[in-house]
Amino acid sequence: MDLLEVTDLRVDFGGLRAVDGLNLNVSQGEILCLLGPNGAGKSTTLDLICGKTQLTSGSIRFDGHEISNIPEFKRVRYGIGRKFQVPSVFKELTVDENLQVARSKHSGLLQTLSKFRHRHSPEIERILELVGLETRRADMAGNLSHGETQWLEIAMLIAQDSKLILMDEPTAGMTIQETDKTARIFESLRKTHALIVVEHDMSFVRQVADRITVMAQGKKLAEGTVTEIENNEAVKSAYLGH
């Protein structure tokens, strides 16, 4: 059984059908890359899975549960994490505090009420080193550069440790070296997590993708391995534009 099974997913925004009859499966330990031209409905698909947007029809099953009608925080508790296209971290909290918020295995009221803030956890230390923010832990997240903010949000998702992580354009605005490093981090996440990654950077996709789904105008255009997609005529004409 797949970790995530999306069946006949549809959403209407007024007259616009942003996602139209989409089927999507992701299994444990898999990295699925979601490609498509601007406005294809990639971010909206992630929104539907994590509950930011309510679907019009269809079904989303995650880890054996139908989740299409439950509030977003409950979906998160089942194990779905989300990185947004516009980096969104808590700018008025320190890097360290951002990570503590993200570590949300115990997110109930009584659990947080009974937890007085401790200073160093080896886990957070390790994650900070992984993304190279270990010297910035006491800084306000609002003082980070764009690239560092991207890293912080990625670090937060690692700290959150969800079974399925939805990444919306994680390498946007990164240099080639930074993109490389992100690819390596994703590789290391693959063992224990499933990922859906929306990306435009093809060299990054080649490095990390187990499978690719291409969307256009809300529909699935093609699906397959990197080579299959790169040789797909429909994709070439619709997406690559030649």
Partner: peptide, 19 residues
């Protein structure tokens, strides 16, 4: 800490699993 996170961005806090 969670209250401060909510003050800044309630939506983002929800997507970390907080009610």
């Amino acid at each position: 800490l969670i209250l401060r996170a909510i003050r800044e961005d309630a939506d983002r806090t929800r997507f970390f699993g907080y009610n």
